[in-house]
Design a protein around this nucleic acid. Structure first.
Lengths: 197, 197
DNA sequence: CCGCACATACCGACTGGTTAGTCTGGCGTC
DNA sequence: GACGCCAGACTAACCAGTCGGTATGTGCGG
């Protein structure tokens, strides 16, 4: 077994990732020094550069985790055996809930994209596009079957909805009047109402 | 007359602000050095620190300009002599157009807030809140007169709409298939349809 | 209408501090 | 004794902001 520092027995790479996620969300990528991260994780630079190639790598890992999670959940909802309206509502509400449950990840995602190295940025964008297209397909299906209005291009509707989701981290307060489920239902309602023919 | 550098006769402070805006939007606040800014503006550090107190000051100026402009335009639309539905549609579409016309400002706005010093951050937030409240008042007016549905809290509707606007800079491409006016009309439509009773 | 004092606008070398990433070495386990 | 795991001092680069200095313009007393 690798040496355990202090009482914390969770593996060092995960501790580093967790510390980095929190600090990046609180202060931003550039304002967070590698020194701060390793101190928060209770290790030293040697450990960090043993597991990760660079500070940039750490950021990329955060993105990869979020993307994997969201893609999986969307697949579940999109593939369900329900009318398209219900599938879209389910997916739209679920992405709100999981975003709120990982607000740190979300705020990093939308504030720090441009800090990724060009190739990693491209990779993330491609992954992201796949996600959007999946979501868009749901809307187009509804439009073609006449359940949703065709007045607005599906592309635009997707960007409209995800814009607001990306900004949840700016205004959602866990101690506010609305629970995450309530917010999710409201936002899904807004989307569905906007799509009514 | 103050010394003019090269052929550019626009005042130095404005040149600095323009250069800073572009660079902040392209690379982010932290990734942009003061040296880069002054080089892009064709002056030196002495000039920058003659007109601005700090790098932070420069960022604050960008915010102040945007806020002033948006507040003025909203006031115009909100105070028009029209039914509330038309006033809201006008305001909602206009903010999209002006945001697209100043995409650099917009991307700085939503990405670099946390780089402002705490007191300036507070100031900007307060100003921003006033703007949101103004917008919310329009929606509430429509809800009370029965033109809009009351199903979703007005607060949430405002955040929903502005979330998508803040993210225009991530997906809107001037060379894309839709003109800024078309995008604005579509987004205003989405909002109005979502508010239909 | 001259000349002196003062102000405004800017230059650019310099400083003190911070940072990402490297490297050597040592500890523990198989 | 080899190898994975990690410590921590070190380095080279960079950066915001400072400061003494210079050039141009402006007001005023004589």
């Amino acid at each position: 077994m690798p040496r355990t520092t202090d009482g914390d027995t969770t593996p060092v790479p995960q501790r580093l990732l967790a510390a980095a996620t929190r600090l990046f969300a609180e202060q931003g990528y550039d304002r967070t020094s590698v020194q701060e991260i390793v101190e928060a994780a209770g290790v030293t630079k040697g450990a960090l550069y043993h597991y990760f190639g660079s500070k940039d790598d750490l950021l990329h890992e955060v993105y990869a985790r979020v993307l994997r999670l969201q893609q999986e959940r969307l697949d579940t909802f999109a593939g369900a055996d329900q009318p398209v309206g219900e599938r879209l509502r389910g997916a739209a509400a679920d992405v709100v809930v999981t975003t709120i449950e990982n607000l740190d990840d979300a705020s990093i995602f939308f504030r720090s994209m441009h800090h990724l190295s060009p190739d990693k940025n491209l990779q993330v964008r491609a992954e992201r596009r796949r996600y959007h297209e999946r979501f868009r397909a749901l809307i187009e299906e509804g439009q073609q079957t006449g359940v949703f209005t065709k007045e607005t291009p599906a592309d635009l509707v997707v960007d409209y909805h995800f814009g607001s989701i990306h900004h949840l981290s700016t205004w959602y307060r866990p101690d506010g009047p609305l629970s995450k489920q309530e917010v999710a239902d409201h936002l899904a309602d807004l989307l569905l109402r906007a799509l009514r023919p």
